[in-house]
Design a protein around this nucleic acid. Structure first.
Lengths: 335, 335
DNA sequence: TCCGTGTGTTGAAGCGTTTCGACAACATTA
DNA sequence: TAATGTTGTCGAAACGCTTCAACACACGGA
């Protein structure tokens, strides 16, 4: 292994000088700088990460804590991950993978051994058992998702309330006056999953604000129950001309159910989904997407900010983006 | 931070003694051992990873090099990853994530700075530009996939030839005598992707061995061309009673095409797929799966073996496993 | 001429481990 | 009893880097 001493000898300077050239923490004359740089290049020198970590007590590594539990949408997760990794690299940080199955143990170990400078925790739930742990360890952390109490934390999430509202606004602007909401399976609401409720709340509030009649129902993820839910929405509100769907699994059955009930999309009933973009793209649905890249990037930036001692807000909510597609159209006043 | 010196002081021994308790590299009296252990527990001591890496020139970290290029099947990739991470943890190793977009640069940096002890490279192609790099760096590596020349490397892969053969054998055992093969899009064969050819070769050889008439065709991934390919297979070989499909994207259209041509699965034509297990499960297809967990685990075990100086074979091929499902049935001799 | 003020460079002291050689203390053999 | 192992422990020297205090030097101002 080629060390800083080798470089120093080769360039005819002191090791400390080489260090200062590398870190730029002191002014170095242009001559020495280029001389040292040349020696570094020639010898193929790379600073030893461990030694550096020891000396600076900074590992330049952040832990990425992934859930990998069943039910996470992998393509979206991967987009988080790549965005986070890319952002990390921009700040000369590397990423250590910590899977959730390593559990509390893993977090503590990684934190205690100073292997990482901070934690990026993905897919945080309303009542996440990792949160108390993260409060204990020395390293700062940023969470993607929104636990019940964000005080003292740094969290990033999509503004689901705004997302629900955005759907209503879009439909209202198109002239719709009676809108239905097809939600997640009821078990999700029972589990207090946070984002589901918040979307609903945002939807409901926006409807009230715009003077729009709204009806909401949960939906399970098989054709039969989607059909039942849609039928009962239409029965409750026969004038319904638009549907907001917040349920990835049900999405595939919605168009079919509507067709089975004699309604065409978008002419009779417009549909807006809240779902990963690729799903919406595939089915040609107007949708509010989960901005995975943006979330991953933001989270990492916030983490880096905290590592550099900058204060950060406990909760950063990203504004929803709506992409118009074939499933919505202006409401034409029929003769 | 609590250091080994703190522990030593607390336990009334020398730092080196604590170290020996931790590593077990010298015999320590039971009394001191428990005393030291107790102090460690009490003070919540964790060895500093950087310091350890510096002293031992072993980071206890392996790099996981992911492609993340479009077209990789993410659920399968994730199963690789979790299996690899789990295996790594069993050997007290952590996993650093290196995405391919960091490219050669990233590999060199991570290797040069001694951040990792080895590389686990996923989704290696026949002519992979990472391979020459890996030969240069000091750390050993294990590849999942099979590049053109494996000499001096350590590679793990599914035995695709055997997989092709396994399908034939299964069908032959059921009494089928005329079997078709629906392959990947022709562009894949042109690209020399290795595994596609090897599957074909295995299929063809097994058919010859069993005295079975076989016809093979590539298939694109839209309904029209799948239909065309299936029709032309049936025209070439009207007595065909079974189909081996090695094309994830086409899979969805196969049953429909057969139905459109008046053939029922499995009564008229049996189907065996070579694809990720969940796809097969979902469509109830008899299939040979990609043993992702097994590959990830094996790869990590091999890497650990190499790190410990054990020699490893340049190529480890995992035997294919066939799961019988509803799409195959014994060939009944019709009246 | 002397003094302060920058600027560029250096030597040495850490950072927290591991590990080697040394050395007591005790047990075993001659 | 002396010589020889064996076992358990210790002190100190690495490992490769950063960083602080110190210093040499040149510069302009009194």
């Amino acid at each position: 292994m080629v060390t800083i001493a080798d470089v120093a000898r080769h360039a005819g300077v002191a090791p400390s000088t080489v260090s200062y050239v590398l870190t730029g923490k002191r002014s170095i004359s242009p001559q020495t700088r280029t001389k040292v740089r040349e020696s570094i290049r020639l010898l193929g020198y790379h600073p030893h990460a461990g030694a550096r970590a020891l000396a600076t007590s900074r590992a330049n590594v952040v832990a990425l804590v992934l859930p990998l539990r069943p039910g996470v949408h992998l393509p979206v997760l991967m987009r988080f991950v790549t965005a986070a990794v890319t952002a990390a690299r921009r700040h000369d940080m590397d990423v250590l993978l910590v899977t959730a199955d390593q559990g509390a143990q893993g977090l503590r170990r990684v934190a205690g051994s100073a292997q990482v400078d901070g934690f990026l925790v993905m897919d945080v739930e309303l009542d996440d058992d990792r949160v108390p742990l993260l409060r204990q360890v020395a390293q700062p952390s940023v969470l993607i998702g929104r636990p019940a109490a964000v005080k003292g934390l740094t969290c990033v999430d999509l503004d689901f309330e705004a997302a629900g509202a955005r759907c209503v606004d879009h439909l209202a602007d198109l002239g719709h006056r009676y809108i239905g909401f097809l939600g997640a399976p009821s078990v999700v609401y029972q589990r207090n999953t946070g984002y589901a409720q918040r979307t609903m709340a945002g939807f409901g509030a926006a409807a009230m604000r715009r003077g729009i009649a709204s009806t909401a129902l949960p939906a399970e993820d098989d054709y039969e129950s989607v059909l039942t839910s849609v039928r009962s929405l239409l029965r409750t509100q026969p004038a319904m001309t638009a549907l907001v769907v917040h349920n990835e699994a049900a999405l595939g059955w919605v168009a079919g159910s509507l067709r089975a009930l004699g309604r065409k999309v978008p002419d009779d009933v417009a549909v807006v989904a809240i779902c990963p973009d690729e799903l919406a793209e595939q089915m040609q649905l107007t949708s509010v997407q989960l901005p995975a890249e943006e979330l991953g990037r933001q989270a990492m930036e916030l983490l880096v900010a905290r590592l550099n001692g900058h204060p950060t807000a406990p909760l950063t909510l990203l504004p929803p983006k709506l992409s118009g597609r074939a499933s919505t159209a202006p409401r034409l006043r029929r003769a």
